[in-house]
Design a protein around this nucleic acid. Sequence first.
DNA 1: GGAACTCGCCAC
DNA 2: AAACGTGGCGAGTTCC
Length: 471
Amino acid sequence: MPPQNMLDGYGLLHAGTLALARAERNGMRIDVELCERHIGDLRSKIIEEQAKLSESQLGKDWTKKYGSDTNYGSDTQLSSLIYDAYGMKAGKRTAKGQGSTDEEALRSLGIEELSHVIAIRKYSKIETTYLGSYVREQVNGFIHPSFSLHTTVTYRSSSSDPNLQNVPVRDETAMEYCRSVIFARKKHRIVEVDWKGAEVSAAACYHKDPEMIRYLKDPKSDMHADQAYVLFKLQAFDQIINSKGLKSDPDLYRLRQAAKNGFVFPEFYGDYYVNCASNLANNWCKLPRGSWSPGQGVPMPEVGHMSDHLIRQGITSLDAFTEHVKKVESDFWNKRFRVYNQWRKNWVADYQDKGWFNLLTGFRCQGVFDKNQCINYPVQGAAFHWLLWSLVQVDRISRQEKWDSRLVGEVHDSMLLDVAPEELEHVVATIRRVAKEELPKHFPWIIVPIDVEVKVGEIDGPWSRMSPYKD
DNA sequence: GGAACTCGCCAC
DNA sequence: AAACGTGGCGAGTTCC
């Protein structure tokens, strides 16, 4: 038996394709001259870094080995230089077993001059993948990113030519270079509407874990803050946390982000404590590896040096921290979210029995999947379908009501619009109504509140300058 | 000279 | 017992 609502699934993709085709036709305005200026700027930065590299010992060894074939952009040459010629031990390997030359691997080698290689890569990435593709793809000053619903195994969407779904946002420099050239139409503003915690909420509709539902229903509760508290043993900061809340302190807030992105989400995706501990130590808290002696850090809440804090809590090395994260993980799955955990086990067993599983939105995944894929696909797909269904409604309403505002794109759990300022209030109210009222009516299995976050650009302002929308 | 591959890196 | 899910895309490289 196919899923009972399979025809609904087909209807959603059909309507979604048409709505996305209209968004594609709409497109987004690009400042082509600014792109060219940014590209020129990046080229000089790259030349500077290349010059510094060629003067260094590493650069000299590189030229000695490859002569006129020397290419600082070749990872093959770099790999051969550091792992063969220098004979360094590869701490990290690629999928095919070669010594890795990614940023993490290069940093771990402790060769100062490799920072130039990393810088060249970062600037080149911005120049070619983003700004270069905008100039190449633009027609009369507009890019028309393409959206597909038939390419992904999860029933999410994809975007290409150019891809609007991977424009830098976390790295401030890259964000500024790339988003500062993208605009709405003249006299209009860019509006972005994000579905808050879409995947966590969609997952809850499958597993129905009461503790998770409590978190999602109670606006005062904070799953990531609670996790930061146990992960980093923050009892010493009870006074701050209880009086002003963890979010009020910038350093404690960064630890909340670390818990969210370095533990909670990876655990949901199927990662485990050894990776989480290592990533947290390396990327989020900048804890030294190996044995931590007092003085390697300073007292919390200096996030960059929190080893003294952990030493005081009896966690004196990465190994000890890993053991601690192991206990936190066990508590996470066996106590806090034990219903979620049981659902994962049952879901995978059921798939292994039948060879397929259904999404709540009317799709079936059939094929050979590993455990993590089994758990992740239905969640990713259904979360995206919330957005897609809402996008179809907004597209329809915008045409019925003859808006001067229009949809221009979508990034899995957010929609992107080009909005006429006089319509802003109405557009936002419409989307809020669709998301919070009509969507749960359409999908009666939604058992958690839906919420959206609206960000607006300035009139004639770029995508790099977005502020929270205030009603 | 183009197809197919690996690797690295951007997003959610 | 095993160990992070989904995409697109550019550069370099290898193969035909």
